[in-house]
């Protein structure tokens, strides 16, 4: 791999950050765009989550009165969606680009459309449409109204005005934008198979594809998620995460009064953990239809309690 070593001169390589030719270029263009608008540019949350919404920067920060504008990439895991790397559109691990704007600015639709321009999608050539799609997350006790955003018939983003999170009314309402990065990149790069995406934008021998980076992972994790994950351990982990979450929540109330909470974030980590473990168990098909509902309810109870705790912290706006 000697020739793969980076040389300074490569930085000048034409077009390797063009969002329509490079996956990472697309990410950088979106980051640049939203950073210019004053968003806090965060890094991915360091835990397994099913969607960018689970990042505390969205779930918890959407609650309470304080303004909050952030953008970040979030690796998302959906164990059930794995296809052993054989399906050109389905992945058990993919990237979401998440933007949260609280309160939702009056020109949020224009901001979104300009972000598409920033990655080379010109609405004068492409048919951009806002198609009704109400969002609900039973595990987070959250719902909102909004759209799927279509570009020439392809869903490229989700656009949601959060009305409720963790069972609490959002006041003010936050606007959430979620870009499915692989899909968007496939669209702008014009490829039909996700694994053919150009990752680094190079067209010479240093070109790296999405498949080179992730195909092996898709195969291995599909095997793990569907066939070999240790379900006995996972059942145990679910219980442990649930118990830990409850324990931290109970211990976090300052002076035993329900006015100020000191451990909302660590407690919420356990809620995320429980949610992911549930997804793993679900992928293994070891949770029956009736049990499924009760697991979802258990995670929701944790999420609600975390939301309540968060609202009693400084970040949540408590005095």
């Amino acid at each position: 791999m000697a020739e793969a070593r980076l040389r300074a001169s490569d930085n000048a390589h034409q077009g390797n950050l063009d969002p329509s030719r490079s996956f990472q270029g697309l990410i950088l263009a979106l980051q640049q765009y939203w950073a210019n608008l004053g968003c806090v540019l965060l890094q991915p949350y360091d835990m397994e989550v099913g969607a960018g919404t689970f990042h505390p920067a969205t779930t918890l920060r959407a609650l309470g009165p304080k303004p909050w504008n952030a953008a970040y990439v979030q690796p998302s895991r959906r164990p059930k969606d794995g296809r052993y790397g054989e399906n050109p559109n389905r992945l058990q691990h993919y990237y979401q680009f998440q933007v949260i704007l609280k309160p939702s600015p009056p020109d949020i639709q224009d901001l979104y459309l300009n972000s598409l321009k920033a990655i080379g999608i010109d609405p004068k050539i492409h048919d951009i449409r806002f198609v009704e799609d109400d969002w609900e997350s039973p595990t987070l006790g959250a719902w909102g109204l909004g759209w799927e955003c279509w570009c020439d018939g392809m869903e490229v983003s989700q656009f949601t005005y959060f009305q409720q999170v963790a069972g609490f009314e959002c006041a003010p309402v936050a606007g959430e934008l979620t870009y499915g990065l692989e899909r968007l990149a496939m669209y702008v790069q014009g490829v039909d198979n996700v694994f053919d995406l150009n990752f680094n934008g190079r067209t010479d021998e240093k070109k790296v594809t999405y498949g080179q980076v992730f195909l092996q992972a898709e195969q291995e994790y599909s095997r793990h998620n569907f066939e070999f994950s240790d379900t006995a351990m996972l059942f145990e982990q679910f219980k442990m995460a649930e118990a830990a979450c409850q324990k931290y929540l109970a211990a976090g109330w300052a002076n035993g009064k329900k006015e100020r909470h000191l451990m909302a974030l660590p407690a919420y980590d356990q809620c995320i953990k429980a949610s992911h473990v549930f997804n793993l168990l679900d992928a293994r098909g070891v949770i029956s239809v009736t049990e499924r509902q009760s697991y979802i309810l258990r995670v929701r109870e944790l999420a609600k309690a975390c939301g309540e705790a968060w609202l009693a912290t400084e970040g949540g706006g408590a005095g």
Partner: peptide, 23 residues
């Protein structure tokens, strides 16, 4: 059938609600 609140005004109780933000 379903309506929503939005923007800075949604922090106040009794804020206007409409099917999607009204401009």
């Amino acid at each position: 059938p379903k309506s929503m609140r939005w923007g800075a005004r949604s922090a106040k109780p009794g804020a206007l609600s409409w099917v999607r933000p009204l401009h």
